[in-house]
């Protein structure tokens, strides 16, 4: 079945379209909305978005695969992205990533069996003063250590 936006989201998309003189310019924001709605950007969603913006599905695929934030496969309820760039690495980011993977018993890029967590690495999040840091969905967590990570995960229901 091909995906469809809810009426509320359709309204949201209309608002976005109004920001630009060309429909196509709304591609990135509309893909964000679509990802929020469906959790990931599948082929069907690509096609739907293409139709919505009067562009070709191949143009949507080009964009979806260029930007790292679009998930092409479903991710867990909480997508944990650990910064692997310099400041975070200097302060032990790599060790914390290992800790997280071990704690959730999954490999990098994998999702826990209960579909709750996915872990991946990410390039600099722009929060270097809080290194080491990570992002859970859109929330930033900084000055991390193992104890803090334990607490954060406990609070993610």
């Amino acid at each position: 079945m091909s995906p469809e936006f809810s009426d509320k989201v359709k309204k949201q998309v209309q608002d976005i379209l109004a920001h630009y003189p060309e429909k196509k310019a709304a591609l990135l924001p509309v893909l964000h909305v679509a990802q929020q709605e469906f959790g990931f950007i599948g082929e069907d969603t690509e096609r739907m978005v293409a139709a919505l913006l009067d562009i070709k599905p191949v143009q949507v695929r080009e964009v979806v695969t260029f930007y790292t934030m679009y998930n092409r496969k479903p991710v867990g309820k909480y997508h944990i992205q650990v910064c692997s760039n310099l400041s975070c690495s200097l302060l032990g980011g790599a060790g914390l990533l290992d800790f997280l993977l071990k704690k959730l018993n999954i490999g990098l890029g994998e999702t826990t069996k209960d579909k709750k967590f996915t872990i991946s690495t990410v390039e600099c999040l722009g929060a270097c003063e809080q290194a080491p840091c990570m992002m859970v969905n859109f929330d930033y967590y900084g000055d991390l250590d193992e104890e803090k990570i334990d607490k954060i995960l406990d609070n993610l229901k």
């Binding site: 990135l28 924001p29 893909l31 964000h32 930007y67 790292t68 934030m69 679009y70 990410v122 390039e123």
Partner: peptide, 9 residues
């Protein structure tokens, strides 16, 4: 208007 990027340095 605020336009969101999507992960690309």
């Amino acid at each position: 208007y605020v336009h969101r990027g999507a992960g690309a340095y």
